[in-house]
């Protein structure tokens, strides 16, 4: 049975937040906390100007609309990595899917992204062939 620390049913009012997150304040200006693994991630990333996902678990947060950094989305849901796409010039893109509203977004991978997590994501279609025989049939047809 869960322990109850508060015996009365009156709930304390939420504490007023006096620290402004984001630009202009010293706190959480140069980093963010990952929604998936709770690690603190610096915003500066090698190879990309704007990082939008955690380099460790590759999860992201649905805060932007169509333009990166516009903070136009009111969803704030967790975005999990869905697949890896490749640009014609060979750059990898990470496709995220919002767990809350189902929106998809693509972002270039950063230089310090977890190579093992990226490789697991890239190998996922080959590991479990979902549509029966699609992967095996395609391999046999080659």
């Amino acid at each position: 049975m869960a322990r109850r620390t508060r015996t009365d049913d009156r709930r304390r009012a939420q504490r007023r937040k006096d620290v402004l997150h984001g630009r202009g304040s010293g706190h959480r200006e140069q980093d963010f906390r990952c929604a998936g693994c709770r690690l603190v991630v610096p915003l500066a990333a090698p190879g990309t100007a704007h990082r939008n996902h955690c380099p460790t678990c590759l999860e992201s947060l649905h805060v932007d609309g169509r333009v990166p950094g516009d903070r136009a989305a009111a969803c704030r849901g967790r975005m999990v990595p869905l697949s890896v796409s490749v640009r014609p010039d060979g750059e990898w893109l990470l496709v995220h899917e919002c767990r809350s509203c189902g929106e998809l977004s693509a972002n270039r991978i950063a230089g310090d992204d977890n190579a093992l997590a990226l490789m697991r994501l890239a190998l996922r279609p080959l590991r479990d062939p979902g549509v029966p025989g699609v992967a095996h049939g395609a391999l046999l047809a080659l």
Binding site: L82, S83, V84, S85, V86, E97, P129, G130
Partner: peptide, 13 residues
């Protein structure tokens, strides 16, 4: 790209 659901089904992005 190809995405894989938890059920194992393939999706085309």
């Amino acid at each position: 790209s190809i995405a894989v659901l938890r059920t194992g089904d393939w999706m085309i992005v």
